[in-house]
């Protein structure tokens, strides 16, 4: 089959859109994602408005879910399992882990199912597909906002009752922690989304994989319980330094080191860019393999 001649730079400036079989690995067209920022906002609005329509208790579920999970964890891991939280009030310990994990896991799963959940829409109209994961992060950020306020309320009550908590200057890194979690969820989610297009196995793996990952992420136990020998394996999981740093900032006690947090950020960055590259590789062909 004859191939058309190479385009010169002059040609490229003349045509506003050039449609070719393959794009370069790093031709990510992020500027276009920015152009579609209105769409990110409207997807966010749609998901937020639609998620609790036709439920009786509506936004109440934002709060009920983490409180109930915290209670269950408290009873099972705190009382029955007797996990020692090293001076940290158990209820706050579990709740902090749960709201962070909720944010992360929900971003991750919804990003990972981007192509399968939106194939109808993607088959009919073009827009940068990355707008979907970005709007997912916004939606979950809003949910997290509510849950975080709830956490602050519990925290304030505990403080007022004289429970030994020591919020400290480290609280200033909270926005960075959130950003890192979002980047990690998008990165891993995009990798899984790209793999799912070819291997449907990953759609199943992600569902229970996220659950297993939680048990390796210091949600139900503190890093301080881990032996020094195996500690490095936990540190390689970027969620461990994030959750531990969050608790450290609020409670004033923790064993996490700064370099461990920096390492997790490095790992996150690699996964984030790797994920976006893989995602934009498949976004133009994923419909062919349904």
């Amino acid at each position: 089959m004859a191939e058309p001649a190479e385009l010169t730079a002059e040609d490229l400036s003349e045509w506003s859109t050039v449609i070719t079989p393959a794009r370069g690995w790093f031709d990510l067209r992020l500027a276009q994602v920015w152009e579609y920022r209105d769409l990110i906002y409207l997807f966010f609005r749609r998901d937020f408005v639609a998620s609790y329509k036709q439920t009786i208790l509506g936004p109440f579920w934002f709060f009920a879910q983490p409180v109930m999970t915290t209670l269950v964890f408290w009873v099972i891991f705190g009382r029955i399992g007797k996990i020692v939280t090293k001076g940290v009030p158990q209820f706050l310990f579990f709740m902090a882990g749960i709201i962070l994990w909720n944010f992360f896991s929900s971003c991750l799963i919804r990003t990972a199912t981007t192509f399968t959940a939106n194939s109808g829409l993607f088959g009919k109209v073009y827009f940068p597909r990355l707008t979907v994961p970005l709007s997912v992060v916004l939606t979950n950020l809003a949910t997290f906002g509510f849950q975080f306020v709830m956490f602050l309320a519990f925290f304030a009550v505990a403080w007022w009752l004289g429970v030994p908590v020591h919020p400290n200057w480290r609280l200033i890194i909270l926005p960075v922690l959130l950003l890192e979690m979002a980047a990690l969820a998008i990165g891993v989610g995009c990798i899984v989304a790209a793999l799912t297009v070819r291997y449907r196995d990953f759609a199943v793996i992600i569902q229970f994989g996220v659950q297993l990952w939680m048990y390796a992420s210091c949600v139900v136990f503190p890093l301080a319980l881990i032996e020094p020998k195996t500690r490095i394996w936990f540190i390689l999981n970027p969620m461990v330094p994030i959750i531990e740093s969050f608790r450290y900032a609020f409670i004033g006690y923790g064993v996490i080191q700064l370099w461990e947090l920096v390492l997790s950020m490095g790992i996150t960055l690699v996964l984030f860019f790797g994920g976006i590259v893989m995602f934009s590789r498949v976004e133009r062909t994923h419909l062919d393999s349904i």
Binding site: M1, E3, P4, D11, W15, T17, V18, I19, T20, P21, A22, F122, G123, K124, V125, Y126, R284, T285, L287, D288
Partner: peptide, 10 residues
């Protein structure tokens, strides 16, 4: 919406 296998469109 989908990419061509060969050739191009401008």
């Amino acid at each position: 919406i989908t990419a061509p296998t060969t050739g191009r469109a401008l």
